[in-house]
Design a protein around this nucleic acid. Structure first.
Lengths: 221, 221
DNA sequence: TTGTTTATTGACTGCTCAGTCATTTTTGCA
DNA sequence: TGCAAAAATGACTGAGCAGTCAATAAACAA
């Protein structure tokens, strides 16, 4: 009877002397399987949404029996969490890094837009889940998804506030403006995801950045 | 065994002489029940999404037995269609009217934003369904929802093109700009729907309009 | 190779839910 | 008031699906 392997579990008592930080073979295999399952699940969830996706379908796509899935995950919900947690963390870190390393408020905004567009191109299925998931899904409510945006928005807001103080841009309500950047970006991405786009991602991103910059130069009357 | 009453059905052969356009009592009652069911269904769908909503729940909220629901509608999907069709048509007509009666491109854009905000305040549940529904739902795919926007966007696009030709606004790609107005609006509305907003709808709408106008005055470099 | 442990399997269970239909209740007419 | 037609009902059916587990296969050690 195989147990669920915890990703970062302390070494068991059976092997008290061996290297602690090194993964056991068991763990390596386990992580490999989990990754396989997550990959399959990401595709299925992106296509069907959480509720309509079935574990049988995920298992079929991963070329595993359903029972095997439940060796590595406790529930459908946990699979879903694993799928998102991973990409969500990466995306947030990437976004924050890129915002941080940009200098001016304008550049930080551009960094936000560009990071999202780039990551969206790379991980279409992940973005599809993000932008498509209904409120009823137990895990990623729209509200919770927004939570992941709070930190980037905070960064943008304070950069905008500084820029206003230094008269680099017009006098706008900073936080609302930051959320507007977010809305603009996800709107454009959503549009790219739902139809086959006639423009390149670069073109779309550049347009947005230009558009925002144009507005920034003016002042809220 | 009561039959499904078709909303706009030609008079049956039984009553060949009577007034054709006047509704029979049967029809009036039927429409009343349908409206009751639609109202209940709108609330449930808005809360749960199409898949998670159950017909039993809709019936309970409408204070009817499930069987009664199926006297007036053929399927869960048909209920869903009826819920949306209704509001979707109204919203589109309202939007187009208001755009048409505005003069300049700027005013037309403001008309679009204001109409959406106003209707959203009035019909929260409807907007919740619109903005929340997953791709897997059989009826309102994001793509199809976007279809309802095509006509308004067309109107805005041509207004923008004219305004550019007459140098009232900067030189922007007209259709992309129109879609941007749409994105901005639905983004802001979605934000209002998912958290209790700290600002009034008027404030949000005014901000958007000012923001767009500020950008319009410039030119895409 | 054989025996033991570990991983995999898929048939099975219990539950939820859309849709049905025989029965009961209401309506409206004589 | 009594009676027939229409409307409403809710117990029931069948399908689909998350999660289980006894049986089987693979991996590995001696």
């Amino acid at each position: 009877m195989p147990e669920l392997i915890q990703p970062v579990k302390a070494q068991s008592v059976k092997e008290p002397i061996k290297e602690q930080p090194v993964k056991t073979k068991k763990q390596v295999v386990s992580e490999f399987r989990q990754a396989e399952i997550i990959t399959a699940a990401r595709k299925v969830f992106a296509e069907k949404g959480y509720i309509a996706a079935t574990v049988d379908e995920i298992a079929a796509l991963a070329a595993l029996a359903k029972g095997t899935i439940y060796v590595y995950f406790e529930s459908k919900e946990q699979i879903y969490n694993a799928v998102l947690e991973n990409d969500l963390d990466t995306l947030r870190d990437l976004t924050l890094e890129n915002i941080a390393s940009a200098q001016t408020a304008r550049e930080k905004i551009a960094a936000y837009v560009n990071t999202r567009f780039k990551y969206c191109e790379e991980r279409r299925d992940f973005f599809r889940i993000m932008h498509i998931e209904p409120s009823g899904s137990p895990v990623l409510s729209k509200a919770r998804a927004r939570g992941w945006l709070v930190e980037p928005v905070r960064q943008l807001t304070s950069a905008i506030e500084n820029a206003i103080a230094e008269k680099q841009i017009g006098h706008w309500p900073a936080e609302t403006l930051a959320w507007t950047v977010v809305d603009l970006t996800s709107g454009a991405l959503q549009r790219r995801l739902s139809a086959t786009p006639t423009t390149t991602a670069r073109q779309d991103a550049d347009f947005l950045i230009k558009f925002i910059n144009a507005a920034l130069s003016s002042t809220a009357s």
